[in-house]
Write a protein that binds this DNA or RNA. Structure first.
Lengths: 202, 202, 202, 202
DNA sequence: TATGAATGAGGGTTCATTCAT
DNA sequence: CATGAATGAACCCTCATTCAT
């Protein structure tokens, strides 16, 4: 009659998943050992297998956690009280803030690499999630254009792709350079580039 | 009288390095086995060790090769006969073309991940190279501004960072989405965003 | 005042031992896990250790149980009211009936294999028990010969070995072939072979 | 251009397979470790995997080897120059001789146990092989009956089953008792039981 | 007493690297 | 120079056993 609450299980699952994220970022997915993850979580190797099927399951959970964080950031930005442009900027700000965390970036990169390789699940989920973020930003851009907050002549989807790529690329750059990317400043530059009315149309 | 010409050695080194790039992209750095690389190069496993110290050495060579390709693309762009803006666009075009190749992107990502991890050399070289590309584009931007081809009020370094990040990010997106990123179209959008004169100076 | 009756303990011990026999037969001794045995017994893993020292102890108990069943079958046969030959036939019938049960055969085979391996106890007990069954049948045969129910020229011990081997071998065959061995029919054939008077003596 | 002859490969495969048979008999299939098998074969652990897919493959090879030996013994007996009864006796003699070797018996028992468990291949092959030996002996018995060397009233298939079971059972007994079964003497007893003309037909 | 989470040693397997040929 | 068989360390995973509750 040992009482093992769901809360306890959830806590363990969360702790292991976070430990995995940390170690995956530190050593890479393949380089991470279950022992190191267990140690990081303060457990023995075998304990992990009570909560996760195996390493693959843990990888999937770590990736899913990353997507969930981003998704929540986007939902929060979308719920901003300001205008459409404000929502876009807020989404960028939150995304960039996330990407300044090397752990997050490392996992995103591993995710991207995983999507380019065999084994279906990761690739499919990554692709689907990217579709989601691109669609979401495209929608925001279109709405902003309709509200007259963004120049109407810009291609909404193209701009969304550019903005998504920028966030990813800036994270990558920050990872490589370590502290040299100023998110706020870059955001300001972007706003100026995109939101400023142009003199000519072509 | 065993005659082993330098040309022969160079050819072998090149073949192995290219095979390594292919297999690294296909399986990931850790997932790639020396045997598969050897097979890809049409050699036996042991032969690699006559030309490279070991796997780490091969990884370094593969990464260096990637940097060299990019460097040559940049030099070629810089030598364009057109104006400064033309040179920037050409650099973007060449960089983007490279990044549409998944093998290149995979290796760039592995490189970025490697830079975030232990072992010193890769991180240092990656950082130094990124510094080089950012400096180079910054110089081009400044020159273009001086030539009146770009708005003078833009921060040259910030813009360079944005452009560098964009190239990386678009490559990553293309890797994830597989064929959905149109490099030319995106380039056109960027030119419009950056090079179009603004009505107000803000 | 925690009252734990001996009956309760015996019931637990018996349940666990039977569960062990079932799982040992299903997965093999090595392949059986304490968890599966516990589940089969409707207990938790840890509970087993209150009634048995460990897996080895449980194995010994499972084997002992098998021997006990056989011993009882033999005693029952010996107590038959008919003649000596009848007792032998009854012993054969009961033994064969047991051996038509795959679980029993599996455990007997594991027992035989165990006797061929390291650990002293199992081997010794198996050997001693086989000595017992051979001696017992030998005694029955000798008695039957004395009673004129079996040809006197047959070597009693040799015949006992043959009969013991046959029971084991038929069980093994039934295990391998699954339902193709007809115990009754085989028994009839044996009776005819052994008990029929011969025309010549040599 | 290292010359690795097929003979060398065959020798290795044979050595590993024999080492596996020895260790399987000594520790049981599950209890045997690849390390111990490798050591028994005078190799390192990893070397085995160049010649066998894995442990399962090695198990299958070890079992197949056992079947092959028995098959050859049977073919040899069948080719005897004497009469049909002589062939049966020779088959029994060769089979029993094999079964006096504990290693062979251990593997046969493991094989029988394997056939009772999940995983299709072993069970199917074991069953098919037993069918083969039973059919073969049945054929010999029928031929002997036709030649007047065996009583015609005996059921050929039933007798074949009995004889097959006997060989297996005697091997098992020998394994348990260690040197107490005299194959020749038992064979003589059997011949007397089976081949002696009966006074009545029952 | 009973539970089942946790431990950690040990097994199967892979693969970077070496070296005899 | 090239080959590829061999080595052996290290990984993922399982499971007998323990122990706090």
């Amino acid at each position: 009659m040992t009482r093992v609450t769901q809360a306890h299980i959830d806590a363990r699952v969360g702790a292991i998943r976070n430990a995995a994220r940390t170690v995956f970022a530190r050593r890479g997915i393949e380089g991470a050992t279950m022992s190191e993850i267990a140690a990081e979580a303060g457990l023995s190797t075998g304990a992990i297998y009570r909560y996760f099927q195996g390493k693959d399951d843990l990888i999937a959970a770590a990736f899913a956690e990353g997507r969930e964080r981003t998704r929540q950031a986007f939902e929060k930005a979308r719920a901003t009280s300001g205008g459409m442009l404000e929502a876009i900027i807020e989404a960028g700000r939150l995304s960039l803030a996330e990407m300044m965390d090397h752990e997050t970036v490392c996992l995103d990169l591993e995710c991207a690499l995983g999507s380019a390789r065999a084994g279906g699940a990761i690739g499919e989920q990554t692709r689907a999630f990217r579709e989601y973020t691109i669609d979401l930003v495209e929608g925001l851009v279109a709405a902003a254009q309709e509200a007259g907050e963004l120049p109407p002549e810009l291609d909404a989807r193209g701009l969304s792709i550019v903005l998504n790529a920028l966030v990813l690329g800036l994270g990558l750059l920050e990872l490589e350079m370590g502290g040299r990317v100023d998110a706020e400043e870059t955001l300001a530059l972007l706003v100026r580039l995109v939101a400023t009315p142009r003199s000519g149309t072509a």
